[in-house]
């Protein structure tokens, strides 16, 4: 089954997981997941609630470290380096592997300060002009610049939900990550804001490796090239999105996609 999970790509995998198990205390949340993520393809994780897709996503930038009692086994590499290696600095890892959360979570600061936060703490910029340029570029890439350029110093929390989420994406982009993890980024948004985020994901593809967890199968079909179906903590099937949706190999995948459960 593991062999089936590999998907062809022109470039080598950006991140690879091999035989990953995740435990919360005694409870095993993820068992034996192996998966590759590359720069060219957006990967969607789908599956019913509680199947472990978000948990697995959080292992990719070690956000599970913040949860007491969480434990990860197996190997996850970024450009061939094990990220759970004791030498790996989690701060640097998270600067390379950014994350966008389910609910927009801008800091209670101005729009400008939200985007400038990462470059400042990582010392990526010299001087105000440089920082201004990074902020503008990040907001442009997140498709938010035209909407907010005249009110950069108003609070980020005053934006609409969809704008807040794009602000969070801009904030993640501002530190120039290599991988962006998105944990159900549209679940708190209306359809129009969702469409904008999906469009944005298309535009970001190729520049960043993108992994998106979604509850919405249409969304997975729209935004991703590769889809991984999780069920009960296991990776059931991983393949090219169009094949997963039209011709799944596994019965469980087929049942889920046709709406028999989930």
């Amino acid at each position: 089954m593991i062999e089936d999970h590999s998907v062809k790509s022109d470039r080598p995998a950006k991140m690879s997981a091999r035989n990953v198990n995740v435990f919360y205390g005694q409870k095993q949340a993820i068992s034996g997941v192996s998966i590759d993520v590359d720069m060219d393809n957006v990967v969607a994780f789908i599956g019913p609630s509680g199947c472990g897709k978000s948990t697995f996503l959080r292992t990719l930038n070690r956000m599970n470290d913040t949860i007491a009692g969480a434990r990860v086994e197996g190997q996850i590499t970024l450009d061939g380096t094990d990220i759970y290696n004791p030498d790996m600095d989690v701060v640097q890892l998270r600067a390379r592997v950014g994350m966008v959360f389910q609910k927009p979570n801008p800091f209670p600061k101005s729009i400008y300060e939200n985007v400038a936060y990462g470059p400042r703490i990582h010392g990526l910029v010299d001087g105000k002009a440089d920082l201004d340029a990074v902020v503008e570029q990040s907001l442009r890439r997140a498709g938010l610049w035209d909407e907010v350029k005249d009110r950069l110093h108003e609070s980020g929390t005053a934006l609409s939900g969809g704008q807040q989420q794009r602000l969070c994406i801009a904030r993640a982009i501002a530190v120039d990550p290599e991988v962006i993890l998105m944990d159900e980024p549209c679940s708190a948004l209306d359809p129009i804001a969702t469409a904008k985020i999906e469009e944005l994901i298309h535009e970001l593809r190729g520049r960043y490796a993108i992994v998106i967890v979604t509850h919405n199968m249409q969304q997975a079909a729209r935004v991703s090239q590769h889809t991984a179906f999780f069920h009960l903590g296991q990776l059931v099937e991983y393949g090219v999105t169009s094949e997963i949706f039209t011709n799944p190999r596994e019965v469980r995948t087929k049942d889920y996609i046709t709406g028999r459960y989930g």
Binding site: R94, I121, C168, A172
Partner: peptide, 25 residues
């Protein structure tokens, strides 16, 4: 908690998160 996670996910250290996000909030 989303504020804290947001900051940590940006690669901020714990004390940066406290100083720049938690205490101001």
């Amino acid at each position: 908690a989303a504020m804290r996670d947001g900051s940590l996910a940006m690669g901020a250290t714990q004390s940066e998160t406290i100083r720049k996000v938690l205490i101001p909030a």
